[in-house]
Nucleic acid binder design. Structure first.
Lengths: 122, 122, 122, 122
DNA sequence: GTGGTCTAGACCACC
DNA sequence: GTGGTCTAGACCACA
């Protein structure tokens, strides 16, 4: 894993873990790597991974069993998608509309570009 | 003006000024407010406005006449649109495609949502 | 049994066992389950149950007969109540008073709430 | 300030700051000490204070102005009281009822004890 | 100056 | 072994 983005590493790790859960690498309710193990894999300080886990704990995406470890929540992938969906429709979509208006891009124009880009990344 | 976003204030100011230029409040080649005046209006530290202007200077959107003040570049609005367009197609659109795939949102679904949102903000 | 609370599991187990003794499920002087059996029932690590028993041993609530097992003390339920009473009047009550003052809750207000809650849990 | 309790220091600091806000030492909307300053006063690592502030930020009790500092939220004391009240009625009160039943303490008995304790701490 | 993040290393309670 | 907390010290972007 690479940390190119400007976003804080702990968030990138959290996002990455969400991807892994949605991709069923760690299924709902399954144990996820220990803080220390994951830190070793990612070549990152354990505190940073701990911060990611604490963040996901707040969101209800992971859970915690004392002295045992962290687990994906029972409905983790559902929660993740719900959160992403909400953020998409409430934040990204309005921003998209604003940009399109500023640039005089019509819905049709965007649709065309999207269809092209959609196929490329198949 | 409000600074609700997480983006740095100097960028929010720069964006805002670009909007004003595109909206012809300050036409291409016209003088824009002095750093101090603008800072007073925005209730912001003058250093912050100075940083915004420096940023726009790099992009060629504003120009500087020693001892006189800052001016919108001759083709400012054209440059602004070009920059936004590039960033849109190279950065935002791929990100959009990625998000849509992660959330199983089809182009049709997005188009529908967009048309609704487009009309609301008329 | 569920371990929802933030308290350490070994304490929750100890509390639970005290409840069982007071409720006469295990009478004063009677044998209580072996560490292994209880651990199996609670789906918990045997070390954790052992720690609970050690804790209750210190308090004089359970006793240990070498090679045979653990027993509730002869006056176990009396001891339990005495301990709870002491902790109630010395720790919980002062904390309650402090909270009530901070929240401007009068004795009358609390009494009313209590009577409602008391009946619900009959 | 002393840190005798078993609770994490960052929470004790957060609680303490809430007390100060409710007591109007830092009024609603006013600036609170910088992370470094407060850490120096409390003789604690700045990271620990930062953690307290981050915690209060989540709860909406304090706010944040980039590069300037932390401020008590506009309705900070109101929010604090609401949170305490909710936790009191949803968590402490049921626990109190449970303890009272276990110890055969009647509402009348508690009321009497409370009134005594109330006056002492005037 | 401010806060935000990260690293390193330590100690603790718990299972 | 696990996570939780704290310290120390560093670097960064921002105002």
């Amino acid at each position: 894993m690479q940390f190119n983005s400007n976003a804080p590493i702990y968030q990138q790790i959290a996002d990455h873990l969400c991807d892994l859960i949605v991709a069923n690498v760690y299924g709902d309710g399954e144990r996820i790597p220990s803080v220390r193990d994951f830190a070793a894999v990612l070549e990152v300080n354990p505190n940073t991974v701990a911060r990611s886990y604490a963040y996901l704990l707040e969101l209800g995406i992971v859970e915690n069993q004392r002295g045992i470890g962290y687990f994906a929540a029972r409905e983790a992938s559902k929660i993740i998608k719900a959160i992403k969906r909400a953020s998409f429709y409430e934040r990204e979509l309005p921003a998209l509309v604003k940009t399109m208006k500023a640039l005089d891009i019509s819905v049709e124009e965007l649709t065309a570009s999207l269809e092209g880009a959609f196929d490329e990344t198949l």
